[in-house]
Simulated scan of single mutants.
Amino acid sequence: MRECEIQAERQGFRAARASVAAVAAIALLFPVDPALAFKGGGPYGSEVTRGQDLSGKDFSGRDLTKQDFKTSILRQANFKGAKLFGASFFDANLTGADFSDADLRGADLSLADATKANFTNANLEGALVTGNTSLKGANITGADFTDVLWREDQRSYLCRIADGINPVTSNSTRETLLCD
């Protein structure tokens, strides 16, 4: 009887080793960027980056639809040409980030600090900017702000620096900010 128990135990160990090997093989075939590691659920994407320091990270050209960057530090991050439809940058530090040619339609930029960020030719249609969202020193040439509800002081500031026409929507930055 004891020999049967030993054989069963060995088979169990073999099965466990095979399972570990299979998981390791899958991890090698499908690597996950640690900056996009799952941190929790919520209404945004399954790859949550909430509250992380991702300064200087390159997200250019990536599809980050509904990505959650709430309270993250994204100084000098590169989002050039990224699809950020419905992404949340609530209370994030976006100082010097590059959003040129990015799709930020419906993104939440509430309370975000986007000082000196580059929004050249970005599409921000319907983005949320409630609170003290800051775009001081930002480049907004060709950005589309259609249906973005700015506080009057924010809109007034942006109208002083607004110029260009968005190449995707053909809308004038000044017109989308309701300047004039």
Rank of each mutant, 00 (worst) to 15 (best):
47 E>L: 09
71 T>E: 10
117 A>F: 08
133 T>G: 02
46 S>V: 10
135 L>V: 08
22 A>C: 08
42 G>W: 00
21 A>T: 12
30 F>N: 14
32 V>Q: 14
121 N>Q: 09
60 S>Y: 06
102 A>M: 08
88 S>G: 11
73 I>L: 10
103 D>H: 07
125 E>R: 13
110 S>M: 07
127 A>E: 01
49 T>F: 12
33 D>F: 06
111 L>N: 12
80 K>W: 15
63 D>R: 13
62 R>K: 15
113 D>C: 07
145 F>Q: 00
68 D>W: 04
119 F>A: 06
96 G>V: 03
151 R>L: 05
108 D>F: 10
118 N>V: 09
135 L>P: 05
63 D>F: 07
31 P>C: 12
131 G>L: 04
34 P>I: 13
149 L>A: 15
135 L>M: 05
79 F>Y: 02
125 E>G: 14
149 L>K: 14
116 K>Y: 14
19 S>P: 11
51 G>F: 10
112 A>V: 01
53 D>N: 14
135 L>N: 04
134 S>E: 08
57 K>S: 11
68 D>P: 01
152 E>V: 12
127 A>K: 01
77 A>Y: 03
111 L>S: 12
41 G>A: 12
127 A>L: 07
120 T>V: 14
54 L>C: 04
50 R>A: 11
103 D>Q: 12
38 F>C: 14
111 L>V: 14
